[in-house]
Design a protein around this nucleic acid. Structure first.
Lengths: 239, 239
DNA sequence: GAGGTTAGAGTCATTTTGACATTAACTAAC
DNA sequence: GTTAGTTAATGTCAAAATGACTCTAACCTC
């Protein structure tokens, strides 16, 4: 697949300074049709050329006096209304030909939102959530498909799953919810008893004295994440 | 520590497009005074303002029609003469105030060279190798100290140490050399017997039928790295 | 109150790990 | 030569971690 570029574009591009933009891959969990918790991500429809009408990652240009992380958080809020509880820099994509109209360097970001935030999103014809394995993702603008692939790789290769999982679940969660997240990320089933034992061995999960009532069966205890370590690349989103 | 910025600079910066540059942290191993293998990295002396005369990471501006990885490899060769056997993107530093004279966005790269390449470097008053814990590293230009810190963090948190270690050692190596690299990276001593057993358990290291002669003692067998997996962010430097 | 379902604790054989002992192979000093 | 000294490589064993499984507790619905 190659995009035709006119001679004028190439000549023009040679003298233009690179445009700096950010794009963010936001992951959240949501139950699929079969009730299994799966990874989802929101996309926005492009309204301008190039790739007008195609789905793309939320993002936009970096402001002249704005830090890169701030640009990621801002464009995310502007396009989707989401304020993620986790944001980190992913990778910078700068191939000379990744945009047909200009030299475009995009700093990719990686964000996590809770299940609650996923449910509260207002979707319309220009903003929607897609499952991570939705075939629609094959037709994205620019190289956004590759950005998502890399974000998935990063997510699955994180050293500390506990931290990631708790960002997707929010403040309090049951061990079954946590296990479902791990299973979605790892792509395999885990033994509930052994899973519990391993989490108890670490100090990063703490039992609260609350229980999740209202379920069909025995109410599970709620837990809290108490880990302190964090990636040095995490962006502070508390501002 | 804050660098004074004149009002003219600030005003000017507001209307100037961001400058795109690359900087590379290159790691190699070399024996320190006590004969222990340690991590070293090369720095170059800045000849222009800002920070003229200070040590800095090798790098330079990204060409108009050049990919980011190519810019990393090129500036590295131009400033130090090194052609690394491993190169990957590290992080993009883009704080609005990281350069006192302009909006400067720098894509940091991370490279590894073999012990042999370290020894073959020509050092002069403007290019020199420094141990990773050299106090001189506290006085670098820009935020280059932080870039190095992040590169060290990344190095130590790599999923596959075997791959990293073999890039630092070259094609063939003894288990003692490999263990010395692991010990330098992990910062602790490893039991030679257990180290051997764990490597044999993986398929990524293969014994050759050659031995390293000329040592003081029983000659050790030479091994070869046969692993295939690689990070998706690795830049192809075979061009 | 009975049956169904999930939460959570416990058991046990197997595998992995860390610590240490033993043997093999070479060089240098005598 | 022979021996002492040093490193390479293999072997042993107890402790710890893991995987597969059983058992009991607590809630809901009917």
């Amino acid at each position: 697949m190659s995009i035709p570029t006119g001679a004028a574009n190439v000549a023009e591009r040679r003298n233009m300074p690179p445009t700096l933009a950010v794009s963010t891959v936001i992951f959240g969990i949501r139950a699929d049709k079969k009730g299994r918790t799966q990874l989802w991500l929101p996309l926005v429809r492009r309204i301008r050329q190039p790739y007008a009408g195609r789905w793309a990652l939320p993002g936009g240009p970096v402001g002249a006096r704005e830090s890169l992380g701030a640009a990621g958080a801002r464009t995310l809020a502007e396009t989707t209304g989401l304020r993620p509880c986790y944001l980190e820099q992913l990778y910078t994509f700068g191939d000379p030909d990744r945009s047909p109209t200009q030299r475009l360097v995009t700093i990719g970001y990686f964000a996590l939102v809770t299940e609650e935030q996923v449910g509260a999103t207002v979707e319309d014809e220009n903003v929607a959530w897609f499952a991570a394995d939705d075939p629609e993702l094959e037709n994205l603008a620019f190289d956004h498909r590759q950005i998502i692939d890399y974000a998935l790789w990063r997510l699955r290769n994180k050293a500390e799953y506990g931290q990631i999982a708790h960002r997707l679940l929010g403040e309090r969660f049951t061990l079954a919810q946590l296990r479902a997240v791990y299973e979605a990320l790892l792509g395999k089933e885990l033994d509930p008893a052994n899973f519990r034992r391993q989490l108890n061995a670490t100090r990063s999960i703490e039992a609260t004295d609350e229980y999740l009532a209202g379920g069909q069966h025995r109410p599970p205890r709620l837990y809290r994440y108490t880990g302190t370590s964090h990636d040095p690349l995490e962006v502070d989103t508390t501002l």
